[in-house]
Amino acid sequence: MMIADLFDESDFREKLIDLGIPIDQDATFDECRSTVLAWLDSTPEAVSHVVGLFETLRNTDVVLLPEVDEFIENILSIHTR
């Protein structure tokens, strides 16, 4: 039996914090999402780092929580035209 490695909201929050996005350790997923959107608007030089992280996550074997996957897809559709 194989157990999937689920990438959940807390994993997502940790990766965003590692990128330098100013997110509280106890932020909710909605707070993370709105902070990322505001940060991308105010820090355009960071877009490539966020896109790189999100593309890496999409191309690994981890199972993304549906909300995380949807948010990643939205960001990539905006910033990888």
Rank of each mutant, 00 (worst) to 15 (best):
E67P: 00
D26N: 12
T60K: 09
P44E: 05
F54L: 03
V63M: 13
P44Q: 06
E31F: 02
D26R: 11
F29V: 03
S77F: 05
L57Q: 15
L65D: 05
F54N: 02
W39K: 04
V47Q: 09
T28E: 04
R33A: 10
D26M: 10
E45L: 09
E70L: 04
V62L: 14
L37E: 14
V50E: 01
G52W: 12
S34M: 15
R33M: 11
D41C: 03
T43Y: 00
E67D: 11
E73H: 09
P44N: 08
R33G: 02
E73L: 07
L65R: 05
V36E: 00
S42N: 15
L57E: 11
N74V: 08
T35Q: 07
P44R: 04
P66L: 12
E67N: 04
V36M: 09
E31D: 02
N59F: 07
I72A: 00
V62M: 13
I75F: 02
D61F: 11
I72D: 01
R33D: 07
T28Y: 00
A38M: 07
A46M: 13
N59D: 13
I75V: 12
L37F: 09
C32F: 01
R33P: 06
T56Q: 15
V50N: 01
V62T: 11
D61K: 12
V36S: 01
V36C: 07
L65P: 02
D69W: 02
C32L: 12
